[in-house]
Amino acid sequence: MAITPPPERVWWNIPIARTEITWIVIAFAWGLLMFSAMIYWHIEGEQNLSNESYRTTPAAFSEKANAMVEQYQVREEAGMPVVHPPPGSDVYMIARLWQWWPILEFEKDQTYRLHLSSMDWQHGFSLQPVNINLQVHPNYDMVVTLTPNESGEFGVVCNEFCGIGHHNMIGKIYVTE
């Protein structure tokens, strides 16, 4: 029994039943397939993280974000600038207690290099209802090259706990035709 020592002194040499060995082989092969799937997706799939990241500081990052806002602001909404950067450019979004700044406006099917960093604590970038979720750290600049393939109004919700105002930390991204 499982609660007593094995009755045989040498139990290693007892052969394994056919059903068990068959299942072990199938399960092992399934594991290899799932492992290969992740590598395959890096080659053929369209949704991957580049792992392009840099060390930065809140000051350096917000300087870049401010420069972008000054250059490409198109209007204001809820007291926040709305920015329409040119396709292909570097776009910055600041996470801080408790807002995503600024509001961004993308064009459909165009590609942007979105930079994310936090000014204070960790935050979670959660694009809704698309449901793309990224972790945002202070002192790290994460670059995501993304291509919005649908137009509309999207929410950016914070999904990493960041204190008492966490649930109010909602931003916005527009995608125009």
């Binding site: 029994m1 007593t4 009755p7 045989e8 002194r9 040498v10």
Partner: peptide, 21 residues
């Protein structure tokens, strides 16, 4: 719970224990 399981014929005390065991 019983000792029934221990009534198997005793292994050869000299049989070498395999490395994995």
């Amino acid at each position: 719970m019983s000792d029934a399981e221990h009534s198997n014929p005793p292994d050869d005390e000299n049989e070498r224990i395999p490395a994995m065991q």
